[in-house]
Design a protein around this nucleic acid. Structure first.
Lengths: 103, 103
DNA sequence: TCATTATATGATTAATCAATCATATAATGG
DNA sequence: CCATTATATGATTGATTAATCATATAATGA
């Protein structure tokens, strides 16, 4: 059980634009594939693959109801992580850090 | 300026075992390449490439002092992110979530 | 049962990635 | 200036990845 590898896998799963869009959309709650792929503007098959991959790496739930399959975020920590990434991104974009260094 | 892409890049940078080991080592503070690569048990050239890449994606500082080049974590949020990833990993390993679901 | 809707998956392709080896550059001390 | 130490980089290779198209499976309702 390589813990470094497992931790990396969780972060790597979040570190891909299409999957990040899925996470953002699922903040609002559980959604089926038929709602997810139009919302993020990706192909159904591609979206399905990413969703499966996100379940495998432990960041999403899957629940079946009739023909539909619903997906939801599995851990509140996921939202915290992507929010922290946003904070870092904003600091990088505004160059706040670079300015502090230059001063 | 694609914000989804930039956020993803930060997370993707953290989502690779060698780079995660670097982040873990740099928790203790600023270190030069000559300290980093033996500590994480990777080749010097490989370590150098990862360090450069981490500077490019905005998660590390670089400071030069004579022949040595020191690297350090640029944002406290990075530690928070990897800690949250650890929390998720532990919950997945202990299967706590699955048990709650099954109950 | 048949048509429809929802989802998943096989095959393919182009792109990206990580690691390695060899070598280059750059600063320092003797 | 030369040898040494620290770091970076070019070239290569095998592996992984994301996206796409076409098709398969599975549930539902008429």
């Amino acid at each position: 059980m390589d813990k470094t590898y497992l931790r990396a896998e969780i972060l790597k799963t979040l570190g891909q634009p299409t999957r990040l869009k899925i996470v953002d959309f699922l903040r609002e709650g559980e959604r089926c594939v038929c709602e997810i792929f139009p919302a993020i503007n990706e192909e159904q098959s591609n979206t399905s693959r990413h969703l499966n991959m996100m379940v495998s790496s432990g960041i999403l739930f899957r629940r079946k109801e009739g023909v539909k399959i619903f997906y939801a975020l599995k851990h509140p920590e996921i939202i915290a992580i992507v929010d922290l990434a946003t904070t870092i991104m904003v600091q990088e974009i505004t160059g706040r850090h670079s300015l502090l260094l230059a001063a």
